[in-house]
Computed example of a mutant assay.
Amino acid sequence: MSAWWQHPAQPVDRGRLAQALAREAQLTKPAGSLGRLEQIAATLASLQRRAAPRLERIWISIFAADHGIATEGVSAFPQEVTGQMLANFARGGAAISVLARHLNAPLELVDLGLAHAVAPLPGVRHLGIAAGTESFLHGAAMTAAQCDAALSAGQEAVQRAVEDGAELFIGGEMGIGNTSSACALSALLLDQPVSELVGLGTGLTALGLRHKTRVIERVVAHHRPHANDALETLRRVGGLEVAALAGAYIAAAQKGLPVLVDGYISTAAALCAVRMNADVHSWLFYSHRGAEPGHRLLLQALDAEPLLALDLRLGEASGAALAVPLLQAACRLHNEMATFAEAAVSGSFK
């Protein structure tokens, strides 16, 4: 019997796609003049199986967890910051808190497991799968059971989004050390050298970056003989929040809910999700290309064209939230512009 993440995604409605592209060709503008917004609107129509795509109800889930690899000095900040930032999210003081308010989007906070436990926070789901992951320098980050629980936490977040009537799912992350996890995942899944993928993360110095590079090179050498597929690679060098994101992306595709992927860590999770279930690919939009070097290579591997390039490196779904108005504009233009026939305008300039 297959695991839930291997179950097929909802099919794309190719008929709706053709109809939407035909409508784009009749709108009062030169053909192709709205660039990628035209294809985005048509793709959303095919995913939502309706002539008038819409994205008015946005759902944001932030998954927080700690990484054992942080004890190897690969981050500029201590692990306590993960819990402190989770409290900041709950108080409404983080960047994603501000952006979610302006999008009128629910902001769900999920604590998967912190190295330094925090007192229960209002509005936070404290799951306590583990006290963060183990350091993957010498062993696996997660047990199979922990990885399964994290994947399921993402699936459950999507179920709540669907029950709330969401039309777009956004996942974000918070976890000191998680760019090291994303780098190790990328190196193993893409078969690329760490030096081409590693970045400053949360503000490392040049000396810190050299140390981080050496640590992750050792990690990759240790795990490469055993990283036989995406799920095992995720278990070995991923994080609880990375697994939750991957699970959420797979579940969203299975439920027929489009996804807007955030930055480097989220895109590493997206690659895991697509490698675990190829159907997921059609349901993912990519918000931005971040400043971390590995992000560009991940996007290339996914054949992804991000909407923005603002040199962001914050994470926590901030880039995805910033890109939502572009997707909404694509829908509104598609639905509300007049056709040449409706406007009694000659179509000769198409």
Rank of each mutant, 00 (worst) to 15 (best):
A70Q: 07
T71W: 01
A76G: 14
P78R: 04
P78F: 08
E80M: 08
T82I: 09
Q84K: 06
M85C: 15
M85V: 14
L86S: 07
A87M: 10
N88D: 10
F89W: 03
A94C: 09
A95K: 09
A95E: 00
I96F: 13
S97G: 15
V98A: 14
V98Y: 13
V98P: 03
V98T: 12
L99T: 03
A100Q: 09
R101G: 08
H102Y: 12
H102S: 12
H102P: 00
L103M: 06
A105S: 09
A105V: 07
P106V: 14
P106L: 13
L107F: 01
L107Q: 12
E108C: 11
V110T: 08
V110Y: 07
D111P: 04
L112I: 14
L112W: 11
L112V: 06
G113S: 13
A115M: 15
A117N: 14
V118N: 06
L121N: 09
L121D: 13
P122K: 05
P122V: 08
V124E: 13
G128E: 10
G128H: 03
A130S: 15
A130E: 00
A130Q: 01
A131K: 08
G132D: 04
G132H: 04
G132S: 05
T133E: 05
E134F: 13
E134S: 14
S135F: 01
F136G: 02
L137D: 07
G139K: 15
G139A: 11
A140L: 07
A144M: 11
A145D: 13
Q146Y: 05
D148W: 00
A149S: 11
A150S: 13
L151S: 08
L151T: 11
L151W: 13
A153H: 03
G154K: 01
Q155W: 00
A157D: 02
A157W: 01
A161H: 02
V162C: 14
G165P: 05
E167H: 04
E167N: 00
F169T: 12
F169W: 13
G171M: 09
E173C: 04
G175N: 10
G177Y: 02
G177D: 12
N178P: 00
S180I: 01
S180R: 04
S181Y: 02
C183I: 10
L185G: 02
S186A: 15
A187K: 11
L189H: 03
L189V: 12
L190K: 07
L190D: 10
D191A: 14
Q192I: 02
E196A: 15
L197V: 06
L197P: 02
L197F: 05
